[in-house]
């Protein structure tokens, strides 16, 4: 995935679409940002300068689907194999029904891409009608996170199989990329050198967050602002 921060206006359509698509639960008060469940979080960056040199930018953060050798930080530590990386697709999935809720994966993730179900998820009765059958609602006491809309990939692969096509060649779009009104989010197969994402990842504007940790995130960002680049990792000068 490549997110163009020059185009991103921080509107949040990606995050809302994600919540709708993935049955992310919500509560009357969502202002405790350390307890909210969000697969796609918007961070606000600023250049630290005074008025009128001040500038702000929004940075949407899905799961980075870390590609570090052998293991992602989270999959390495899960004691019960509830979160695993599919080495074929590169997607880090999380199986809520296997999760024992030890939160070790959350602790290991430097991007805070994981949220814990501190409460029993509860929808207003009438809103249960809008829950998607493709993604099971999680239960209290387990961790959840962005799966790059893994179920959409499965859906696309199933369709390909039915049509007698190669299921490995399918393309699909996660909800966030689909909703983005500015087209700031590009999604595709990084391993395919001809894909848009592979091309954009080599753009001079491209960077990843916390490259120095060698987590090898599969989410790239694009920005032409140096002050944003500087906040992509610690001690960049």
């Amino acid at each position: 995935m490549v997110i163009d921060l020059d185009k991103c206006t921080g509107c949040g359509a990606c995050a809302v679409a994600c919540q709708q698509e993935n049955n992310v639960s919500f509560r009357p008060d969502e202002s405790d940002k350390l307890r909210t469940i969000a697969w796609m979080t918007l961070y606000r960056l600023d250049n630290g300068k005074d008025y009128p040199e001040h500038r702000e930018a929004m940075l949407p953060r899905p799961c980075m689907q870390c590609d570090s050798p052998h293991h992602s930080p989270c999959t390495f530590v899960c004691p019960v194999n509830a979160t695993v990386r599919d080495e074929h697709t590169g997607i880090v999935d999380h199986i809520a029904v296997r999760c024992i809720g030890c939160r070790y994966c959350m602790v290991a993730c430097p991007y805070h891409a994981r949220s814990f179900n501190w409460w029993d998820p509860k929808w207003p009765k009438t809103m249960e009608a809008m829950l998607s059958p493709e993604v099971s609602p999680r239960m209290r006491g387990v961790v959840e996170k962005c799966t790059f809309c893994h179920h959409r990939l499965n859906r696309a692969r199933d369709r390909a199989r039915i049509n007698g096509e190669d299921p490995d060649g399918v393309v699909y779009t996660p909800a966030c990329a689909e909703a983005c009104p500015t087209g700031a989010i590009t999604f595709g197969n990084l391993r395919d050198p001809h894909s848009d994402v592979a091309r954009l990842a080599k753009d001079p504007r491209a960077f990843r967050i916390l490259e120095k940790l060698h987590t090898e995130p599969k989410v790239y960002y694009l920005s032409s602002d140096q002050w944003i680049h500087k906040q992509s990792d610690n001690d960049l000068s």
Partner: peptide, 14 residues
Amino acid sequence: IGQPLRGWFGYWHA
């Protein structure tokens, strides 16, 4: 742990 009843998964799905 959030799901104590699944605590034994540590042995089963180690």
